[in-house]
C-alpha cells in the first residue's frame, strides 16, 4: 500500500501501513516504560539521600550525647567530642556572614540598580559567573598564598571566615540580583514619581520587597560555607584542637576582645574528615555522629531557604 505513494497524486491511498493497533500499543508501552524509568531516575537521588541518612544515623546516633557536644577531641574515640569544632564553625560562619553578606548584597544592588551597560559592567558580570564555578579548593590556595603568607593573618578564624566569605560571594550576588529583578518596575516608578532619589528608592522600596529572596540566598550561601572543608584544609586548619578561642567578652575594659579572630581553630567538617581518615573503625562512629550534626544543620538551613523561596513565589503574584 505504501508503495502507492510513488504514484504522483494519491498519498491518501497510502494509508498508514505501520499505524495499526499493535504499532500504537508498542509506542504506548515504550512511553509507559520511560515514565517508570524517569520516576526511578528522579528518585535515585532521594533514595541515595535516605541511604546516606540511614547509614550515618546507624553509625553515629549512639555517639550523640550531651558529652559529645561538650568534649574536646581526644585520643580515645569514646571520650572525644566536637566542642571545639562547633564553636569554631559558629565563629567562622559569623566572620563569613559579617564580611560576605554586606559585600555580596551591595555588589548585587550595584549591578542591578546602578550599573550602566558598559564594558566594566560586562566584565563584572562575566566575572561573577566565573567565580561561582571556581572549585572551592582554589579559594583555599588563594587564602594560603594571600592571607596566610601574604597578609600574615595566619591559620586563624579570621582567615577562614574571609576565605569562605569570598567563596559564597557569587551565591549572594546572584540571589540579590534575582530578587531585585523580580521587584516590578512600577514600584520604582511610583517612588520616583513623588521625587525620591535613586538611593531612597532602592533603600525604602526595592530592598524591602526583595528581602525574602536575598535572605534565601544568604541562607544557602552560609549553609554552603558551613559544609565546606577543602579550602579550610588548604589554609591549614588544625585538626586537633583541645582549647576554645579567646572569649569575645572580657571582664576588663573595653569588655570586648577581638583576639579570638587570630586564634587557631577547627570546624565540624574538618573534625569529621579527621575522624574518617583515621585507620581503624573506632573513630568512624565519631565521624558519623559529627557528620550527622553537620547534615542536620545544613539540611535544615537548606530546607528553610527552600520553604522561604516557595512561599515567597506563592505570595508574590505581581
Amino acid at each position: 500500500m505504501a508503495g502507492s505513494a510513488l504514484r504522483a497524486d494519491v498519498i491518501s491511498e497510502t494509508r498508514a501501513p505501520g499505524l495499526d493497533a499493535g504499532q500504537i500499543r508498542g509506542r504506548r508501552l515504550r512511553e509507559k516504560l520511560f515514565i517508570a524509568c524517569g520516576l526511578a531516575s528522579t528518585l535515585v537521588g532521594l533514595i541515595a539521600l535516605s541511604f546516606l541518612l540511614f547509614d550515618l544515623a546507624a553509625d553515629g546516633l549512639p555517639r550523640l550525647s550531651w558529652d559529645f557536644f561538650t568534649s574536646f577531641p581526644s585520643r580515645r574515640a569514646s571520650a572525644a567530642g566536637i566542642l571545639s569544632a562547633w564553636v569554631g564553625s559558629v565563629l567562622v560562619i559569623l566572620v563569613t556572614a559579617i564580611i560576605g553578606v554586606p559585600l555580596g548584597v551591595a555588589a548585587g544592588i550595584y549591578l542591578e540598580e546602578y550599573a550602566r551597560r558598559n564594558w566594566m559592567t560586562n566584565i563584572i558580570e562575566i566575572n561573577v559567573s566565573n567565580l561561582a564555578a571556581v572549585p572551592s579548593i582554589v579559594y583555599g590556595l588563594l587564602a594560603l598564598g594571600l592571607f596566610v603568607y601574604g597578609l600574615g593573618t595566619g591559620r586563624s578564624i579570621l582567615t577562614a571566615g574571609l576565605t569562605l566569605a569570598l567563596l559564597i560571594l557569587p551565591i549572594i550576588i546572584v540571589a540579590t540580583r534575582e530578587s531585585i529583578r523580580a521587584v516590578p518596575y512600577s514600584i520604582r516608578e511610583a517612588a520616583y514619581g513623588i521625587g525620591a532619589t535613586k538611593g531612597q528608592v532602592t533603600r525604602d522600596h526595592v530592598l524591602p520587597a526583595a528581602i525574602p529572596g536575598v535572605l534565601t540566598g544568604i541562607i544557602i550561601g552560609l549553609s554552603r560555607a558551613l559544609g565546606e572543608t577543602a579550602p579550610l584544609i588548604t589554609i591549614g586548619a588544625l585538626t586537633f584542637i583541645a582549647f576554645l578561642p579567646d572569649p569575645p567578652i572580657t571582664s576588663e575594659f573595653p569588655f570586648i576582645s577581638f583576639r579570638w579572630l587570630f586564634d587557631g581553630f577547627t570546624v565540624l567538617p574538618i573534625q569529621a574528615f579527621n575522624w574518617i581518615s583515621r585507620p581503624g573503625s573506632d573513630f568512624h562512629a565519631n565521624a558519623a555522629a559529627a557528620g550527622l550534626v553537620l547534615l542536620a544543620l545544613t539540611l535544615s538551613l537548606n530546607a528553610l531557604a527552600i520553604v522561604l523561596r516557595y512561599r515567597l513565589r506563592r505570595r508574590l503574584q505581581w
Binding site: F51, L52, L56, S223, T229, A287, G291, I306
Partner: peptide, 24 residues
C-alpha cells in the same frame, strides 16, 4: 515537590558524601 528535594541534595556537605563513599 521533586525539584526542591533535589535542591536539598546539593545541600549535603561533601565531607558527608565522602563518608558515604568510603564506609557505605
Amino acid at each position: 515537590i521533586v525539584k526542591p528535594t533535589l535542591e536539598l541534595l546539593s545541600g549535603v556537605p561533601t565531607v558527608v558524601y565522602g563518608f558515604f563513599a568510603l564506609l557505605f
